[in-house]
Design a protein around this nucleic acid. Sequence first.
DNA 1: ACGCTTTTGTGAACGAATGCACAAAGTCAC
DNA 2: GTGACTTTGTGCATTCGTTCACAAAAGCGT
Lengths: 229, 229
Amino acid sequence: MTADPSARRGIPDATVARLPEYLRALTGFAERGITSVSSEELAAASGVRSAKLRKDLSHLGSYGVRGVGYEVDHLAYQISRELGLTQDWPVAIVGMGNLGHALAAYSGFATRGFRVVALLDQDEALHGQQIAGLPVRPMDTLDALVAEEGLAIGVIATPAGSAQDVCDQLVAAGVSSILNFAPCVLVVPDGVDVRKVDLSTELQILAFHEQRKALASAALGPVAKGVAK
Amino acid sequence: MTADPSARRGIPDATVARLPEYLRALTGFAERGITSVSSEELAAASGVRSAKLRKDLSHLGSYGVRGVGYEVDHLAYQISRELGLTQDWPVAIVGMGNLGHALAAYSGFATRGFRVVALLDQDEALHGQQIAGLPVRPMDTLDALVAEEGLAIGVIATPAGSAQDVCDQLVAAGVSSILNFAPCVLVVPDGVDVRKVDLSTELQILAFHEQRKALASAALGPVAKGVAK
DNA sequence: ACGCTTTTGTGAACGAATGCACAAAGTCAC
DNA sequence: GTGACTTTGTGCATTCGTTCACAAAAGCGT
């Protein structure tokens, strides 16, 4: 059962998290008319070591040619297929504040396998207003979106206070993958995936390292002025 | 040299990445007037297991009381200090498109140890324009910001095409921590930290799991209709 | 046809992170 | 003051991820 003959089940999470970056690098090569890359080149363009890249790719199958490298188009297709991007995923964005606004207008989604099919907000005052060519809808249209559009992925861009409430509504309607921009922990039933993006958290991690650098240079040479600031 | 007597050097990266979440949870407890929490409660509020939480906290020192728990204020202070948040970090945002706009208006920074001191853009047409109470400045004011404000952290919210260029200018001016929202790999010299936030990447990872769920339910019972869609 | 060069794919060693289980250390009731 | 109870801090085992190093496989020139 665990030993799959097609040797493909169970791609490590760490690998899955890097596949999008490989895909982007491959797209870049393709745009420049390059049809073949070595693991070394692709790794450099993705910001990883070549050994790691090769091990990652080995989990999806054997798509390289020894002595030559990888065919750009073919590898890109295989990664796309593995990530489930051969189809377009409908996405709904909830919360039309500053961030929701920016996300609705972000063009990067469309080019990478996603289609924003709806914008929602709990605030009645916003309903009907057009943002980036789409009307803002009330939350109770979620069921219809899941049924008619096959909506499965929701993006939460509300304040932290309403995030859990909105999340519950998404889950109740049948959405099973959620991208959360609100700075809070979401509780969801089994079978629902949540990923969190938190701007403050990222800055705080940077601050930690920044402080470490400052302390280190202060300890080694408190005299330094130009460089160690 | 590596063996530090105060037993504090070398906090694992995985732990550092979770400290902001603990800090947020603690702030939540404090706001509700709770002065003491157990590792179990704090872990639940942070979305981790209590054993993990305790091991994480043990890396910063021994701030709990056996049989009782942790004093909320004290632990919050210790984590803040470890993350370097007892001071306010000046931050500059580069790229005043949709996303830069939203980030400039985001109030979450100020409450968590950061202060947006400048907005920059390469586009001359935007210079002088006011966004969220700050004027948009040209890139050549970076040196002054580093010298006068002590700027050390920069946020890149430009399109992918100009991100490396902007990054180089930040680094040249002396910025040594960068938060990158552009969907591309940045090359920086040693001593400069980069963290990347990529919306499409996150969605693609969700799509992978979503596809896996769809395939699994299709394989186990292609008959199911209501639930497995 | 054959050896030389290149580059993949992978076994094995290593290191980091997680989870478990319990002794140590404290509080509290009486 | 003493014993029962609670909760932390941590050694240990395990799992997960990365790096190394090289054999196997392909192309190429002659």
